[in-house]
Write a protein that binds this DNA or RNA. Sequence first.
DNA 1: TCGACGACCTAACCTAGATAAAAGCGGCCC
DNA 2: GGGCCGCTTTTATCTAGGTTAGGTCGTCGA
Lengths: 248, 248
Amino acid sequence: MRDQHPTFEKMVQRLERRSPLSPSSRQALLGLPHNLRKLAAGAHIVRDGDCTEHCALLLSGFAYRYKITGEGARQIISIHMAAEFVDLQNAMLQMSDHSVQTLTEVEAAMIPRQAVQELALGNPEIGQALWIDTLIDASIFREWVVNVGRRDSRARVAHLLCEFSLRMEAAGLARDHRYELPMTQEQLADAVGLTSVHVNRVLKQLGEEGLISRDKRSIVIEDWDRMRHVGDFNERYLHHDGQAARAA
Amino acid sequence: MRDQHPTFEKMVQRLERRSPLSPSSRQALLGLPHNLRKLAAGAHIVRDGDCTEHCALLLSGFAYRYKITGEGARQIISIHMAAEFVDLQNAMLQMSDHSVQTLTEVEAAMIPRQAVQELALGNPEIGQALWIDTLIDASIFREWVVNVGRRDSRARVAHLLCEFSLRMEAAGLARDHRYELPMTQEQLADAVGLTSVHVNRVLKQLGEEGLISRDKRSIVIEDWDRMRHVGDFNERYLHHDGQAARAA
DNA sequence: TCGACGACCTAACCTAGATAAAAGCGGCCC
DNA sequence: GGGCCGCTTTTATCTAGGTTAGGTCGTCGA
């Protein structure tokens, strides 16, 4: 596979944080066959109903997962960033039940789903690491159900900004609660189940209260503790910390 | 393990619908060590923050997964029925990020998490089957994000009733869109992100429109097609159909 | 037989957030 | 330099669903 994109290394580190990997497993992951694709902002990686033949690993840029209701409303279900797999979900399930679209320009490694499956089946250590990775995705989905189902608009937006901040930092893409939000207010609205008008009001208010400041798309969380409180944010669900699974 | 509870067999069938299992894998699953527990309605199986040592397989009865917000509101995240694992999620992740409580009297097989992990690591076929099982849970979470984020009250309730109907039938617990709903209107409300008062309004309205009829907790969906439409329900996300993964 | 309790139901009123419509405001392309 | 387009911001108005409060009904236990 010639010289590997450096983000592969980050992906392996990400998996390793939760699940031990032997040197050979590490090599196997780094050696996954793939071809590189450059995608413009707004391009689709997977569409609802596709029978996916590839599993995309994001090498740079951002993407989001969404569904459209019968009424035509969009709900964004998760946001993904470099070193994350999009559609490990769909690599194992025959047909995609949702769409994934890029937020920014994206470089992605398209890995044949066969290769992922064979690796997971042939190497239980890797199988387990990938499994845990999807379990953490599921944990984030659960938190989003709560966010959208039971928090008011202020908390919803604050919660999303907090989640983003921590995930960006964990990915090495931000520091000091300061980052570039790669989405429009309309996309933000579709992520928290509000309208863009109302998201705008909330952002303004959070600014006036000194909780955040922003300039164009860049966000600074000025008062992390208060923001955490306003957003009812507890990072435990991200499972960023340590060992997820004890070795059996 | 003496004589196995018959629901173990159903659990194996459930897994087999999506992922092939050899006879020996089947035997290994049936032979999982466990002890039986009988739980009263309203008992906790796992609490948010617990370090779980067991993974519960529901043998009879119903349970639900939920989180409580800082404001004290409850969001129900999923409902589980016989032959389903609750907390396969938590068996692999160190600490539970949510609670699971019984809706009815429940018999559960408490399987030591070590045993599940060893089996998944030692037998990739089983590892894959369990992985896929959790991926389907995740797919349901995604649909719930949409339900709660972007559908109006009528559609939300209808959607939940449709999902329940199909899942009950798939589990052999119902027929002809007729079933016993094992939850109060308040729990229903917490599942769809509404108040119980409003759920009551909506149920009444669905009844008046001839979409459902009910008597105490028992529900009959009188007009499945219309109900499906009202609830914007597309069962694909349940992945009930066939092969989820092609054998590698 | 009488509470006590839990679930269900209803009605009157209120508000958070939706909707609609338009004005600013950069870019960017020609 | 001018026009267009996508995004943000704002204002005014409306409504779906929340809140509060109370009533009904069935069950269970004393």
